[in-house]
């Protein structure tokens, strides 16, 4: 391993390790791209592909992101963007869960969908896309429904769960699972021009309170559908929350919900009474 580290250090210029060097190291020493990136980060070498993160994410923080395991439940409108952004951020292990295949009505907004991929499973397409975007990231693709009963199996080892579901019932199960598993959940939902985001730490009940009046069925998305931009906005806010929670930085949307109206360009914040819980270190 010392040889590998020396080889990596030799190719580091101005504190940055070019991708070509990561790739050459993987080939030469028969290592995975994940193993090479881990070694680089552990030895304080900043992969050049993340250089525009450099002044906001230090090398030890980039290592922390790389050693994090994030589960994304849903690979559709929200999930496609969430997955793309997590991979580009350098989150090292990503679980992509979705039971569905791409259909024509997904094409207006789901970034992973293309006409050529209609009929293909969303989770598998996500894994293929992410392997191209960032070969150092390990993606576990699961073509199955998430539910409370299989949560421990599907989300095994996850440090955080990202809600990209389109069902309120499954979302409430995810909130319950995350509390049982002791992991934070970043919640997002969209409908038409509208969306909202909130982060819930174990023991908190923000998501349950948001859907307190829900009885059955869907929300306004049933009538309005979803355009191309609403999932991108809400997914990006969710990933910002994931990044902050994993790094213990900033102020997550904890005990508060951010509501977004893209038609009137208004944002509202709703606060929820804090539930007394002990602080959880997501990473």
């Amino acid at each position: 391993m010392r040889k590998v580290i020396t080889f990596l250090k030799e190719q580091t210029k101005d504190g940055l390790l070019p991708w070509s060097a990561q790739d050459a190291t993987a080939q030469r020493f028969h290592l995975s791209h994940a193993a090479v990136e881990l070694l680089a980060l552990q030895n304080g070498l900043y992969p050049a592909r993340y250089q525009r993160n450099r002044n906001m994410i230090q090398v030890d923080e980039q290592l922390r992101l790389f050693q994090s395991r994030v589960a994304v439940i849903g690979c559709g409108g929200l999930g496609g963007y969430v997955l793309e952004e997590l991979a580009r951020l350098g989150v090292g292990q990503i679980i992509a869960i979705d039971p569905d295949i791409f259909e024509e009505h997904n094409l207006n907004r789901q970034i992973l969908s293309t006409p050529a991929l209609l009929g293909q499973p969303k989770a598998a397409v996500a894994a293929e896309r992410l392997a191209q975007v960032n070969p150092a990231v390990t993606v576990t693709a699961i073509q199955d429904y998430f539910c409370l009963a299989n949560g421990h199996e599907l989300l095994a080892g996850a440090h955080i769960a990202v809600d990209a579901l389109d069902s309120i019932s499954y979302r409430l199960q995810l909130a319950e699972f995350c509390t049982l598993a002791g992991i934070p959940m970043v919640h997002g939902a969209i409908g038409g021009w509208y969306g909202h985001v909130a982060s819930q730490f174990p023991g908190e009940t923000t998501v349950q309170q948001i859907y307190r009046h829900w009885v059955a069925g869907k929300g306004i998305e049933q009538q309005l559908g979803n355009p191309s931009f609403t999932p991108a906005v809400v997914a990006s806010l969710e990933v910002a929350e994931v990044c902050k929670i994993l790094l213990g930085k900033g102020e997550p949307l904890r005990n508060r919900k951010l509501t977004i109206d893209l038609l009137e360009m208004e944002m509202q914040e709703i606060s929820y009474a804090p539930v007394p819980v002990t602080l959880v270190d997501a990473a």
Binding site: G77, D166, I168, I190, G191, Y194, K218, G219, N226, Q268
Partner: peptide, 21 residues
């Protein structure tokens, strides 16, 4: 809550159910 009692000067805001992804 739906059964919260309102008082003079209150500001009440109502948002529809949003659940898509």
């Amino acid at each position: 809550e739906l059964d919260s009692k309102l008082a003079n000067g209150d500001t009440l805001s109502l948002f529809p159910l949003v659940g898509g992804g």
